[in-house]
């Protein structure tokens, strides 16, 4: 069986959302569709036994004081990746805010918090206590590096499993 799912990538500005997608999806399509309207789209298929989940990835613009994530972009999403920059602690706070905002729009849908730039742990601003705090919220947290590729596939796979589990 083949299914499709809309998945959003959200997070503060410059946390590495596009880099994570680029690492996960080998496609030149994104380069041609760099957009100025706040989102770019990629697709990637994940196989789970006889099931194939085709992820339509909405790489949203970063959340900052000038630009908010548009709720209309979120609608219809089956899940999302919440990206945090490990070298900037404030992106963790932005993630907490965004999660609440997404929940208002979508209700409860599967998501995975990805703490990016795990290759730069020496320069990390986030403390272990912060990660524990996220865990206590019930978040599924994955450390990843878009630069080295570590944890990237695992993050997307965990989200795909959550979506399939939720749907099956």
């Amino acid at each position: 069986m083949r299914r499709k799912a809309k998945v959003c990538l959200i997070g503060a500005t410059a946390v590495g959302k596009s880099s994570l997608v680029a690492r996960y999806v080998s496609s030149i399509f994104s380069e041609r569709y760099k957009t100025t309207i706040g989102v770019k789209i990629e697709t990637h298929a994940v196989s789970r036994g006889e099931q194939t989940l085709e992820l339509v990835l909405w790489d949203m613009s970063g959340e900052d004081e000038f630009q908010n994530v548009q709720p209309s972009y979120l609608r219809g999403a089956s899940g999302y990746l919440l990206v945090i920059d490990g070298t900037r602690r404030e992106t963790c706070d932005v993630a907490v805010t965004l999660e609440a905002r997404v929940r208002e729009t979508l209700g409860t849908v599967p998501f995975v918090a990805v703490v990016n730039k795990s290759d730069l742990t020496a320069a990390w601003d986030i403390r272990p206590g912060d990660l524990e705090e996220l865990g206590k919220r019930g978040w599924s947290v994955v450390l990843a590096s878009a630069k080295t590729g570590a944890g990237v596939e695992a993050a997307f796979d965990r989200l795909a499993d959550a979506i399939l589990g939720r749907k099956s």
Partner: peptide, 19 residues
Amino acid sequence: QPADQIAAMLSAVDSFGRE
């Protein structure tokens, strides 16, 4: 054709225009 990308971008453009 990258049908899913095109369809998603159509939706995004529609949302962008409306907002």
